[in-house]
């Protein structure tokens, strides 16, 4: 299971205000390998007879893959403002609001696709949508996969 990922810690930034240039929330570490090309390459080695009949295979599960890698905006969580109403968790289509003991603990950035519904639903301004490229030092995917986004002056 991936570790729970957290966004901005309460002390580090108020929601709504842009982070100061250079202040970037850390990328969570993940044990999930980036999957796209690996999976395709794997099937490419299979013979015809290796495929399960009708491709009815072992049940896949997105838990095992990074599905949030194409996100262009990400929600940043202000834990101090959070009232743990869990409306964001109810509405998240990707099960990416992490919860323990009925309290929100953070955001699963391996699977968050940046749709922004959580921020829209939050009544307490505890979730702020920020451009993805502002939020980490290096791209999640390797340079060949994602073009570098240059910041304006």
């Amino acid at each position: 299971m991936p570790e729970n990922n957290t966004g901005v810690q309460g002390a580090q930034g108020a929601s709504g205000a842009s982070a100061a240039p250079g202040a970037r929330p850390c990328i969570p570490t993940t044990t999930i390998p980036v999957d796209f090309r690996d999976a395709t390459a794997r099937f490419g080695d299979w013979d015809v007879a290796d495929f399960p009949v009708g491709m009815a295979g072992v049940a896949g599960n997105s838990v095992d893959y990074v599905t949030g890698g194409w996100r262009s905006m990400r929600p940043v969580w202000d834990a101090d403002k959070c009232k743990h109403c869990l409306l964001c968790w109810v509405n998240c289509p990707d099960s990416s609001i992490t919860v323990a003991d009925e309290q929100m603990t953070g955001i699963d950035y391996d699977h968050c696709k940046g749709c922004g519904i959580c921020a829209v639903e939050c009544r307490f301004d505890a979730l702020d949508m920020r451009p993805e490229h502002e939020c980490h030092d290096e791209p999640v995917l390797d340079a060949a996969a994602e073009p570098e986004i240059t910041q304006g002056a």
Binding site: T40, F43, G44, V48, F51
Partner: peptide
């Protein structure tokens, strides 16, 4: 090649 292999099967 996956689709074609499954069709070959």
């Amino acid at each position: 090649p996956t689709y074609m292999k499954v069709k070959k099967a």
